[in-house]
Design a protein around this nucleic acid. Structure first.
Lengths: 230, 230
DNA sequence: ACCTGAACACCGTTCAAGT
DNA sequence: ACCTGAACACCGTTCAAGT
């Protein structure tokens, strides 16, 4: 009985899943995860309760425990499913830097398809099958690009952590839409100038950049660094 | 009735607080926040319930609603209190880069004094009094270091987001202790080599770096970038 | 005037009673 | 053999009844 999401837990689950037989009725793990994403996208991560999920599926809430160990397992499985949705383009002779940029933008895009789910990527390690496949693929590319093994590992962890946290900040912040960003600027402009002269002076610049701008700038900074370390 | 943690909410709170009178009994906001940190440090953020907090304080759970609007408010106030604990050293003629490094390491240190609280720094903007004071102070330094206004704002947001997410990953991951990192390496070494040749080959390098190493490397990368943009 | 126990509407999870 | 309603031990929050 390992903790949900740990390496040991994924191993237990893999061997247990092969023993499971298909159900005659319609309720499957896939349908459960589909419904969970619908609830999350429409009402947020906090709204994803076992009971709300059962209502969405039109079944008794206790029935879910036949397909899933509990609430936390649903979230962990969703995270790995989203990671499986990262499109991986053919390198096709492009320079390594362009391939890396592309892969990380795809990662970001996959995360932001379900903004409310992003905080779940921070709870524990990413060790599901899709997470491992992504790590394998990415590290192979980084090695082929000429990075030392230790640098490749550092680059993978730093870059993926950057992508994830950037998405979490974008999803949880209030600077996604044009009007939200203007409201933030206005707020800083309205502060008492005696206490916060710099914030008042910089109010027009505050949140002038979009989350995409910020992402691209951070990406450039980090890739420059690891490219130089090659 | 603005949402907890928003700019409007902090304004409402500030004007309401002045109207409050001191209580004859011992229960104060400060004591509540102290007790909350004790619970969080000892049992984690999820253990911080209104009822558990009241038990820690030895009072009825409904009494807390006299000092605090609810559960979320406690967390938001704790976040700003921790931000108030960032020590700010005198620049004292040191080069701007050294001052910035120092300030960001202090930020990190303050966050990691309460690892379980770190996820709370991602829920919404940081607009409390201590957050604003830190922003004012930091942006002034960045301007004095010669950054363009727009670059200074970008640098502040990117660097603080990096510090926060780095702490969140460190706190929620399983790579803090030596034995945890060795366990992670062992797990990657034990994967099927047919499916994951790169992960197996890199297992010794995986999690060889400490979270501190990763932090320092990322910090260097980002500061190099913004220093070059000066 | 202040405090708070009881009440309400929720949770996640278990299990025995149903089919 | 499978499903699930009822039950249990929790939540956050409200409010009327107590002092």
């Amino acid at each position: 009985v390992a903790a949900t999401g740990t390496a040991a837990w994924w191993e237990e689950r893999a061997s247990a899943a092969t023993r499971k037989r298909p159900r005659p009725d319609g309720l499957t793990l896939d349908r459960i995860l589909d419904a969970a994403l619908v609830v999350i996208d429409r009402e947020g991560l906090d709204a994803l309760t076992v009971r709300r999920l059962a209502a969405e599926l039109g079944c008794g809430h206790a029935s879910l425990y036949r397909h899933v160990a509990g609430h936390d397992e649903v979230v962990v499985l969703l995270v790995d499913r989203v990671l499986g949705g990262i499109e991986v383009a053919d390198p096709g002779g492009r320079p390594p830097r362009a391939v890396a940029e592309d892969g990380l933008r795809q990662y970001r895009r996959a995360l932001l398809e379900h903004p409310s789910l992003t905080p779940a990527f921070l709870r524990g390690q990413l060790l599901g099958p899709n997470a491992l496949a992504h790590r394998e693929r990415s590290l192979r590319m980084l090695l082929e690009a000429g990075l030392e093994p230790a640098v490749a590992v550092a680059a993978y962890l730093t870059l993926t952590h950057f992508v994830i946290s950037s998405a979490v900040f974008e999803a949880s912040g209030a600077s996604r839409t044009e009007s939200e960003r203007r409201a933030m600027s206005d707020h800083f402009a309205s502060l008492p100038p005696d206490s916060f002269p710099t914030l008042v002076a910089l109010a027009p610049e505050m949140y002038a950049a979009t989350p995409d701008d910020e992402f691209e700038r951070g990406l450039t900074a980090l890739l420059d660094h690891f490219e130089a370390a090659r």
